[in-house]
């Protein structure tokens, strides 16, 4: 595998993971992670939107006047999000219903704009597309991880299938917003310890 490709993938999924390294896109990470199915669809939706937005931004980057690039990016991102929304409504109405307004809110996800701005503006289309997929995957994986714990403890089920049996007393706290905050904090805490050396060298200081 090409070295640059490998780098993009490891950066997107692990070293520069949008959620626990860049602390981006956490609003939706808090909102939709009470069920694994919702998180999966949200993650896939975000991968699609990020990848294609980056591809498009990268394709037209030479023609885009620098000072209106934000407007252009927002337009591109919204267009793809609406496509995802229409697709879900037409083919998976039950999931579309479960996600409610959160699909539309992918537009406001900072990951997409962040990647368009920092990567797609400077890199060729194919790499940008790949970077979008990798960043989206990093987001999706963390969402699934949080949802796994929240759904398991909050409903005693995974993907809607009961796994813990009737004797399990659900922790209502886990499916309420505080549950999301606790889980996200734990994920960030653990990652902070894993990446300790890096941040002491000044790598991820804000």
């Amino acid at each position: 595998m090409n070295k640059k490709v490998k780098k993009i993938i490891t950066l997107g999924i692990w070293e520069d993971n949008a959620i626990f390294r860049q602390i981006l896109g956490i609003c939706s990470a808090l909102a939709v992670t009470n069920l694994m199915m919702n998180s999966l669809v949200m993650g896939l939706g975000l991968m699609f939107v990020t990848a294609f937005s980056e591809l498009t931004v990268s394709l037209i980057r030479q023609f885009t006047p620098k000072h209106i690039r934000m407007m252009v990016q927002t337009l591109i991102i919204s267009a793809y999000v609406i496509i995802v929304d229409i697709f879900l409504k037409a083919y998976y109405p039950s999931i579309s219903e479960a996600l409610g307004p959160y699909v539309g809110l992918i537009i406001t996800n900072c990951i997409i704009m962040g990647r368009c701005e920092s990567f797609a503006q400077k890199n060729p289309p194919l790499y940008s597309f790949l970077d979008g997929l990798a960043s989206g995957a990093g987001y999706a994986i963390i969402l699934m991880l949080i949802a796994f714990v929240r759904e398991l403890l909050g409903f005693g089920s995974l993907f809607g299938y009961p796994v813990l049996g009737d004797a399990w007393v659900s922790w209502t706290l886990m499916i309420m917003p505080p549950g999301a905050f606790f889980m996200l904090a734990i994920v960030i805490w653990i990652s902070k310890n894993i990446f300790k050396e890096n941040s002491e060298q000044g790598g991820a200081k804000s």
């Binding site: 885009t64 267009a79 409504k89």
Partner: peptide, 30 residues
Amino acid sequence: PVLFMIIITIVFTSVLAIVNELAKDRIEIQ
């Protein structure tokens, strides 16, 4: 920039209009 923005808006809006038109019947049925 103004021309660029107008053109790109027209392009994306028409793409969305087409997608919406294609999916409309299916959404209605659902």
